[in-house]
Write a protein that binds this DNA or RNA. Sequence first.
DNA 1: TTCCATCCGTGATATTCGTCACATATACTT
DNA 2: AAGTATATGTGACGAATATCACGGATGGAA
Lengths: 224, 224
Amino acid sequence: MSNKHAVSATALSTLPVFQGLEAAHLDEIARHAGMRRVARGVPVVRAGEVMDNVYFVLNGSMKVLICDEDGREVIFTIIGQGAVFGEMGMLDAAPRSASVVSAMATDLVVFSQADFLHIMKTHFDVCLRVMGNLAQRLRDADRKIESLALMDVYGRVARLLLDLAEPVDGKNVIRKKISKQDIAKMIGASREMVSRVMKDLIARGLVEEGGQGQLVLLEPMDAF
Amino acid sequence: MSNKHAVSATALSTLPVFQGLEAAHLDEIARHAGMRRVARGVPVVRAGEVMDNVYFVLNGSMKVLICDEDGREVIFTIIGQGAVFGEMGMLDAAPRSASVVSAMATDLVVFSQADFLHIMKTHFDVCLRVMGNLAQRLRDADRKIESLALMDVYGRVARLLLDLAEPVDGKNVIRKKISKQDIAKMIGASREMVSRVMKDLIARGLVEEGGQGQLVLLEPMDAF
DNA sequence: TTCCATCCGTGATATTCGTCACATATACTT
DNA sequence: AAGTATATGTGACGAATATCACGGATGGAA
């Protein structure tokens, strides 16, 4: 396949799952890995399909989402460097419950499920990291359920912004530009409503617009 | 502790995680297991705590839930025989994100996290089953997020009922009595609204009340 | 029995929020 | 530059749903 290449052990070593492995083992693992580069907007996994690959994000980012029959979208999460996807099918053999689409040009490391299963079996550390990752995602999902069930759109926007922000010299900042459409799809609200809420957050001095679509969250924001 | 007892290998063998293990290994595992019997309404895990046990439900059932600061509750799931909980803290060392309360008198098998980690390390099958379980729960959580984001209360009630139902001689039946209050807490709606929707489902002939609070779902229900 | 804790049904009312309908943007392509 | 697709702001309106306020039922437990 023209877009599949060999993967170096050095590239693999940047992935958290493989942290701490001996060089010899990394080389062995790299022998079973492929690499795939996708442009923006390419669906790598489609809901409903049965596929048998496990992917890791080497750089770039992917959207995990689902569309209902009317074409309405829910974005479960946006994942970046180091994240894994496609491993759930390996664990319970069910068809894919969500689609995964590249949010920008992205490099992926690919294993066959059988190969990765063997890697997990022979490296308990890797196994633990994969499990830890699943646990974290389950926590995040439960938190999302909680906010959908208990909070209004205002609160859900605020919570999402806080979750997306990283501290940058004292301030809580969202670096990556994110469209209001996507925010809406992440919190189960309409684009228009998100628009109005954001306007209000800015008017109340809780959020500031930085350059390049960056957002700065001010202190009172933490109250949410 | 007065409510902790030894566990027989036979009891352990009824748990799906340990299916297929040799008797000798089961005995060894049983040596590290404790048993705890709880009455209805006992909180075994509290959100926010850091605890270091892993539990399996031997019989009975438990509610996994969270309360916000105003006391409003969200029920993530109700788990029964064979289910595991408390394993997430073992995997990522974060404090408990949810509380787990017995929904009836229930018997639990208890391991320390360290012991269970060792069991997983020495039995890859057990490890895989635990991962498969996490994957299934993550799918369920995503499905719940989807319905909260896209469906109205009517649709969410219908979907929950379908999820709870089991086929009993041709009919789709919900055996266990479930209160409308709990349904409301499971789908992020008000008790009153659930009451009205259920009334309507019955009026439209989609659902029938059986004895003992059982519910029978009629065919047109599947349209949801 | 009587008490107490849940659970349930229902009407009236208030509010949140989605939808529709626009006019603009903004950005990438050709 | 023109063209096309996608993202955005905003007002008006109506539908979905929470909340409030009851009265009643139900089921143990004392």
